[in-house]
Design a protein around this nucleic acid. Structure first.
Length: 469
RNA sequence: GGCGCGGUGGCGGAGAGGCUACGCAGCGGCCUGCAAAGCCGUGUACACCGGUUCAAAUCCGGUCCGCGCCUCCA
């Protein structure tokens, strides 16, 4: 319905390339291209993997709202060839194709539960080996890459602008190199475009095979090849976690620009901040990896999403159960303000200031404060219009996918309580009788019993309602 | 060592030269048989030291602390 939008909301985005916030001007307002680095599929997604997905889902929603549903192409890749995948395969014996397709399904399922819309295109690296090989050949022909012992390496010294994204210069990189220099590298900073596989590793035949030994691509080349295929040589936005700035994105830029021209490739680079768990880095050795799957067992996807969006995307975020509780409480409040005038909602314009907050480099915390305002307005002066406003704004962030009834009912499940509804109803009836009879001490006793069970009673003009605490 | 980010009230978290952020919690009140919800009101803040300015949490310099990347980890 909103395929054609005209509006004059200016969007400002922080660009890692320039280290500044500038007005976003689409290369082509009829087709805005966004490429987000997706997961390597060797294990269930953890909460850190979810951050870019949620954050850039909001960006895509905003763009669709401003420019029209059909005017945005959102690509998020899937890395399904990688040494970590091979490791898991060799450890567990599960075939690589089984492991990756199972993990992809789980990822898509988890992300959808977090309120994320699927990307338009979700290309898999292994479906694009030919495109990668083509780009590698081109780089060799142009003199930007060389072959050595079955490896193809990118020759960083041929790229005068190398380091412009991460603001490093080659001399520093060489001087500060902590990595052992592989014997086949001309320069310590050269990186692999293609490498030979052992017999027990997945491989594809290539022009660089030695004695018919197949090989596999290096990490960075897939994003260069796939973004080019689906978004063209030059497109609007490339995004991912900050940790990808170097070397991944730096290397992508080097490959793509050497292949397609120095002014090609993504115009704006966006990076979300890092996430820690209760103040510590998430790591296997500490054993504090929090999977989305586990969180979803006890929390609604909307709660997790709100918790994520309460912090601005470029800020570091510390993931705690405390902030999850606060997010849950906030959503309870919003949903309870939606109880009135339920039913025939109307599509309304999303309040301007809400859009403006998001258009200011995705300022979700400010957008959320406006949601509070709208919710409070609805509590003070309930009306269909106020309700619709709150819903429209919330929807744009991916909230309010439930009715209030569904929302509060699901609390029950998430609390995984063993509250017996019949017992509760019976006690409430007893209490009502006691109250009518003026036996308030008995009424209070019954209330206390229910409180202990985690049931909150709300006496209103239309009788007593109850909900889970 | 190099590159980069950050330190805001009890907690979470925006803002970025002068104007209440906001939310949670707290406190006082209204309402209520009592509560809950809701409403009204309210306190506490910009790591430290200098500087620029009529005015600095916001700009500049320095110090301290925390974190990330430089290891195909988002």
């Amino acid at each position: 319905m909103n395929s054609q939008k005209n509006n004059n909301t200016k969007v400002y985005l922080y660009n890692t390339l320039t280290r500044s916030k500038t007005e976003f001007v689409p290369l082509n307002p009829d087709n805005i291209g966004i490429y987000v680095c997706g997961p390597t599929v060797y294990d269930y997604a953890h909460i850190g993997n979810a951050r870019p997905v949620i954050v850039f889902d909001v960006l895509v929603r905003l763009f669709r709202h401003l420019y029209g549903d059909k005017k945005v192409t959102y690509v998020r890749n899937i890395t399904d060839v990688d040494d970590k995948i091979i490791d898991v395969h060799q450890r567990t014996g599960e075939s690589i194709s089984e492991l990756t397709s199972r993990t992809i399904r789980a990822f898509q399922n988890d992300m959808s539960k977090l309120g994320n819309k699927a990307p338009d295109i979700e290309p898999r690296a292994t479906d694009h080996i030919a495109e990668m090989q083509e780009m590698i050949s081109l780089l060799i022909r142009k003199g930007n890459a060389y072959e050595k012992d079955g490896h193809v390496l990118f020759d960083v010294s041929t790229n005068s602008t190398y380091g412009k994204l991460s603001h490093r210069n080659l001399d520093e990189l060489i001087a500060g190199a902590r990595v052992e220099v592989a014997p086949y590298k001309k320069n310590p900073s050269d990186f692999v475009l293609w490498k030979p596989s052992d017999t027990n590793q997945p491989g594809w035949s290539s022009p660089w095979d030695q004695e018919n030994h197949p090989g596999r691509p290096g990490w960075h080349i897939e994003c260069s090849a796939m973004s080019q295929k689906y978004l063209g040589d030059t497109f609007d936005i490339h995004a991912g976690g900050v940790d990808l700035v170097f070397p991944h994105h730096e290397n992508e830029i080097a490959q793509s620009q050497c292949a397609n021209g120095l002014d090609s490739f993504a115009k704006i680079w966006m990076h979300n901040g890092f996430l820690t768990i209760e103040g510590e880095k998430m790591s296997k050795s500490i054993g504090n990896i929090v999977s989305v799957r586990d969180l979803l067992r006890e929390n609604s996807g909307e709660t997790i999403r709100l918790c994520m969006l309460m912090t601005h995307y470029r800020q570091p975020i510390n993931w705690t159960t405390k902030s999850m509780k606060q997010a849950k409480k906030t959503l309870d409040g919003w949903y309870s303000s939606l109880k009135e005038f339920e039913g025939k909602g109307q599509k309304t314009e999303v309040p301007k200031k809400f859009i403006k907050a998001l258009a200011d480099d995705l300022n979700t915390p400010r957008a959320i404060s406006i949601l509070h305002e709208l919710s409070s307005e609805q509590k003070k002066r309930p009306s269909q219009k106020n309700r619709d406003n709150l819903i429209a704004a919330g929807n744009l962030l991916g909230f309010f996918n439930f009715t209030p009834q569904e929302w509060f009912d699901s609390n029950e499940k998430n609390n995984n309580s063993e509250i017996d509804v019949l017992v509760v109803e019976k006690k409430i009836l007893e209490r009502d009788k006691a109250r009518e009879a003026g036996d308030f001490s008995r009424a209070d006793k019954l209330r206390n019993e229910l409180t202990k069970l985690g049931v909150v009673l709300e006496d209103g003009p239309n009788g007593t309602k109850w909900r889970h605490n």
